[in-house]
Amino acid sequence: MEKIYNLFVPRLICEDLHNEMYQFVEGSEGWAYYDILGIIFILICFVSALFFYKIFDKASGNRTTAWLTQLIITAVINFAIAALWIHGRNGDPHNWDIETFFIFGFGIVNFTLAAVYFLIFSFIFKNISINNIHTPFKFPNK
């Protein structure tokens, strides 16, 4: 996760935020904030895709619009978690000082990554689905 964030955050968002996120979490034995946040995001995408393809496996869900809605919901959740988490660490007791503009930027990065992860999980789960094997993309006469 660090490497993926490393591609975007220091160049596009803010070097300070990148440095803060690179710190190890106390008592975690070598886990950076990036790792923790990244795993949470991947889990959210995993659960969301699983929900869409196995639990909410309805005939009416066999539409690209339904899939797109689920993707956006997943991405927005990830955006919100990222932005609120960083915002919560500003000031006491953590003494982070990240500007709102960069918090928003970090949220956008997570929004985008969540969309990509959801897409990847979609291609995995669509094959075990009953009704949604054609979403997001249809391959006729398979």
């Binding site: 639990i55 909410f56 496996d57 309805k58 005939a59 009416s60 009953i130 009704n131």
Partner: peptide, 18 residues
């Protein structure tokens, strides 16, 4: 609880898809 609980055509289509 915690089931799709489909009705009507959706249920039939799901069962056909199965």
């Amino acid at each position: 609880f915690f089931a799709a609980n489909e009705t009507g055509w959706d249920l039939l289509i799901t069962q056909l898809n199965k």
